[in-house]
Design a protein around this nucleic acid. Structure first.
Lengths: 150, 150
DNA sequence: TTCAAAATGTAGCATCGGCTACATTTTGCG
DNA sequence: CGCAAAATGTAGCCGATGCTACATTTTGAA
């Protein structure tokens, strides 16, 4: 078989430009950094809207973490100006926190609806959306909305 | 406007069962935990396939991190039995690592194609997929494949 | 009212994934 | 060949996010 030693045996793998690729990964990392905060504000907003109270223990149970972990994260929410709370009292959202919660919830809805629209089973859509949502850009979100409107 | 004081102003917020919700968040966290490993094996596999070498410096540049960070993560890949390397030499994948890379790449492709199919601009699809892919379950992936086949 | 259980707070530990700074080894060029 | 530059390795720091263990405060029921 006429083959030269250095020839490529497989399809020529096309790598993206170095800088472009690095930028993509950086975007993904920064999205992940805000994911936890987003989960907390969304959940707190839900609890406030439904039951009227957002207690650290409830938050912890719903997120599946220890109450100590939840308390620590709530502290971060407060440092970032998204929530307020006093010792031994429930947690509340600042206007910023509330606005973030609204955006997050709307995005969550869209992602779930899109998944279902392309044939993902509802329960699976809900489960996957919990991780997916933090990485969907505004541009993609707009595309989802257009797609669903058809 | 005839409104009663204590009536609910917003739609009655329906909260998922506590355990169900906790399970969703736990899934998302565990998916995130393997995200970094998946990114590394996929990139290493690409580098090996295209240029023939996967050097820590190249990996670091493409991921947008320092070489020290890359080295540390490569150490983790080795601990987890996904890669091998000797001091001052390139990185290689074990059979397990190669298999993981193949699965990750296939999933990445599907996610990008699905995004494009629903109207997301290609470059945006590539960017978002970098974060999204780690959270798409096998069930959702199968649905994506079915959808694209139509 | 009292007191035990539940909720909350706090301290300390581990891992992970970033980073910078510095030490060491390879590599390649003059 | 020799030596400087590049690549690699290593150490130590930080913040985020988990955890357990223990201290404190609230709460509710007897």
């Amino acid at each position: 078989m006429t083959e030269r030693k250095a020839s490529f045996a497989r399809a020529p793998v096309e790598l993206p430009d170095e800088a472009v690729q690095a930028e993509r990964f950086e975007k993904a990392r920064s999205a992940q950094a805000s994911a936890v905060l987003e989960d907390y504000v969304e959940l707190i907003d839900d609890l406030l809207a439904s039951g009227g109270e957002a207690r650290p223990t409830d938050i912890a149970r719903r997120l599946g973490v220890s109450h100590a972990t939840a308390t620590k994260s709530i502290g971060r929410l407060k440092r970032e100006g998204l929530a307020t709370s006093k010792a031994y009292r429930g947690v509340f959202l600042t206007p910023d926190g509330h606005a973030l919660a609204a955006r997050v919830r709307a995005r969550h809805r869209l992602v779930v609806d899109l998944l279902i629209a392309v044939g993902v089973p509802p329960e699976c859509a809900e489960r996957d959306a919990e991780g997916l949502e933090h990485h969907v850009s505004d541009v993609a979100l707009a595309a989802f909305a257009r797609y669903l409107k058809r």
